[in-house]
């Protein structure tokens, strides 16, 4: 491959390497290992003041993590790849301190009022005891979100391209978009649950609606802002309307489209939670409501944590897809 073509990736790698090659694998990673062993000691040795289960499990997990970190620290002297873990070490140290503090003020000293402030053990207990239900909820949430989001994104993309391309379609769609789009999807909740045959289909509709608006607007602006010179070039070379839309307008608009898909994903999360609290019998949003009803705050926190992981993972997937499809762009934001 040519010299020029390989210049820019190599250059960015070089910069990153600058950051990482400073050999700081070891010391802080070792400290993190010791810190986690310390956490294990606090958990296991200090008797609990609260009545909690899973103390042994929590202590064991902390000890195992500490052991693994110490081992990585040792390996870091031999295997450079492991030494790279070093840049996570500050975080691991802070987490160890935070967990120890949390454990101290809850389970060990019982300083914070129950049930609002759950101990780490209680948190852990939710996962060991209620995981079938949580997994079921996660599954239902993901399926519901996928249906609504994909539907909304597909319709939004299509209507955005149509708006940007055809003035005749724009004439009809634009006023509708301007009137209905800015309305939060949640405002449709009373109507949607009344009009749709099932609460599941109402939820899909609401999520799709929340996704549709930003996707449409951004796709539209992407298509509308394509340089006319691109069309001139393609037309001179014999391109027909089909080619102009599929091979010129859409690829040129893709960076905008992905901003729209990202914003749509964000609002779809918001609607997902609300819709699940209202209309369904399984789902992470439903679980929140349900556990709060039982004053099971530990369950609520555990559920929130899973929800955060799910949303973060989905955003990550979207960014991965974007990086793949927009590999030709430079200066992409790293998520």
């Amino acid at each position: 491959m040519s010299a020029i073509a390989s210049v820019s990736p190599a250059a960015t790698e070089g910069l990153a390497a600058f950051d990482d090659d400073v050999p700081r694998p070891a010391r802080l990673l070792g400290a993190a290992g010791l810190a986690w062993l310390g956490v294990a000691a606090v958990v296991l040795v200090w008797p609990d003041a609260q009545e909690v289960a899973r103390t042994d499990l929590l202590g064991t997990l902390a000890a195992v993590l500490g052991g693994v970190l110490l081992l990585s620290w040792a390996l870091g002297w031999i295997v450079p790849a492991v030494a790279r873990l070093g840049h996570r070490a500050p975080w691991l140290c802070v987490l160890a301190v935070a967990l120890a503090a949390w454990e101290t003020v809850t389970a060990k000293l019982d300083l914070l009022p129950l049930p609002f402030f759950a101990s780490p053990q209680a948190f852990l207990e939710v996962y060991t005891d209620d995981y079938p239900r949580l997994l079921d909820c996660l599954y239902h949430s993901v399926v519901l979100l996928a249906k609504g989001y994909l539907l909304g994104a597909a319709v939004g993309f299509a209507s955005g391209v149509a708006l940007g391309w055809s003035t005749r379609i724009g004439y009809w769609v634009h006023p509708v978009l301007r009137l209905i789009g800015p309305l939060p999807a949640t405002a449709w909740i009373p109507l949607a649950f009344f009009v749709f045959p099932s609460s599941a289909s109402a939820s899909v509709f609401l999520i799709a609606l929340a996704t549709w608006f930003p996707t449409t607007v951004l796709t539209w602006s992407g298509v509308a802002s394509v340089q006319t010179a691109y069309y001139d070039v393609a037309r001179t070379l014999g391109a027909g309307p089909r080619f102009l839309v599929l091979k010129v307008a859409i690829p040129a608009a893709l960076p905008h489209v992905f901003v729209g898909l990202f914003m749509g994903l964000g609002s779809s999360f918001a609607v997902l939670v609300v819709a699940e609290m209202l209309g369904v019998k399984s789902g992470l949003g439903w679980y929140l409501q349900w556990s709060q009803g039982w004053a099971a705050y530990a369950n609520m926190y555990a559920d929130l944590f899973i929800m955060a992981l799910m949303c973060s993972t989905l955003i990550t997937l979207l960014f991965r897809l974007r990086d793949r499809m927009l590999a030709w762009q430079k200066g992409l934001v790293q998520w």
Binding site: Y230, G238, A239, W328
Partner: peptide, 27 residues
Amino acid sequence: RVIMFQDPTLFPWRTVWDNAALGLEAR
């Protein structure tokens, strides 16, 4: 009759090869 502009107006999402092949692909 092909026009060439002051700006190269290459399509940034296409490689050099795909850019050169634009006319053939369009037809």
